[in-house]
């Protein structure tokens, strides 16, 4: 029998440190597969954030740089400007990208930095133990919104993809999900396009991927996928917001 599905070469052998059922791992695989398929492993540099994926540099099997919280797009800018022939991507969660790092992502996008951003949105802070994220839904209970997020007190969840799509410098902005095989396949296609665009010098590319947090949502793996589908997608619609 022939092996038709195996671990991509762009992943190390290190076991992921994510919780059981957390979809970060799927997204890691899709990024690594894309890099294998595009044959760019020897010139790709990933920028890991602060958040659950802080150890992403352990898992990706190519040069990696760890950024401070929220600053991955700035670090990626410094890298891409000095290594234009390399492929640079950031891998960021919702706290990193959409709260503390809002300025960095907006300005990297508006400058049209030729980088790829993998934005993992699971509507909660995972690493610090389940606090409100900028993408936490109205009514959603977290450690810091124990009675549910109230718009008057905590504001509204931010739709990053829609916002960045309005900027002249962005070229490919898409939101996908990981809640079922069909959407995982779509996510893979989007990730691949976001890297191909960089290879073709097409400015700024971002894939926002709806993801789960079973541990902090207090649900099991399967319930989490269902919760994502039923609660997140209505507020964070899937689709391409920009493709030029």
């Amino acid at each position: 029998m022939k092996k038709v599905f195996e671990r991509p070469k762009s992943l190390t052998d290190v076991h992921f440190t994510y919780c059981a059922g957390c979809t970060h791992g799927m997204i890691h695989r899709m990024v690594a597969e894309t890099i294998d398929e595009l044959k760019i492993q020897d010139r790709t540099i990933g920028v890991s954030p602060v958040g659950c994926s802080v150890f992403a540099y352990e898992f990706f099997n190519f040069d990696m740089v760890a950024a401070s919280h929220g600053r991955a797009p700035a670090v990626a800018t410094g890298l891409k400007r000095s290594l234009p022939e390399c492929i640079i991507f950031t891998y960021q969660g919702d706290g990193d990208l959409a709260a503390i790092g809002t300025a960095e992502i907006v300005h990297a996008a508006t400058r049209g930095e030729n980088i790829t951003v993998i934005f993992v949105n699971n509507a909660i802070y995972g690493m610090t133990g389940g606090q409100m994220a900028p993408t936490t839904l109205i009514g959603q209970k977290t450690e810091t919104t124990p009675f549910g997020r109230d718009a008057r007190a905590h504001g509204y969840p931010i739709r990053i993809a829609e916002m960045l799509a309005t900027l002249e410098g962005s070229s490919y902005i898409v939101r996908t999900s990981t809640h079922n095989p069909q959407n995982v396949r779509k996510t893979k296609l989007a990730v691949k396009k976001a890297f191909e665009n960089q290879l073709n010098n097409k400015n700024f590319n971002l894939v926002e991927i709806l993801s789960t947090c079973p541990s902090n949502w207090g649900l099991d793996s399967i319930q989490s996928l269902k919760w994502l589908e039923e609660n997140m997608i209505p507020y964070f619609p899937l689709g391409e917001f920009k493709n030029i």
């Binding site: 029998m1 022939k2 599905f5 195996e6 671990r7 992921f16 059981a20 979809t23 799927m26 695989r29």
Partner: peptide, 16 residues
């Protein structure tokens, strides 16, 4: 199964 596995722990074999 492999597509959805969050730990990339599954390999798939098929008869050609």
């Amino acid at each position: 199964c492999a597509l959805m596995c969050p730990d990339v722990a599954i390999e798939v074999y098929r008869q050609e």
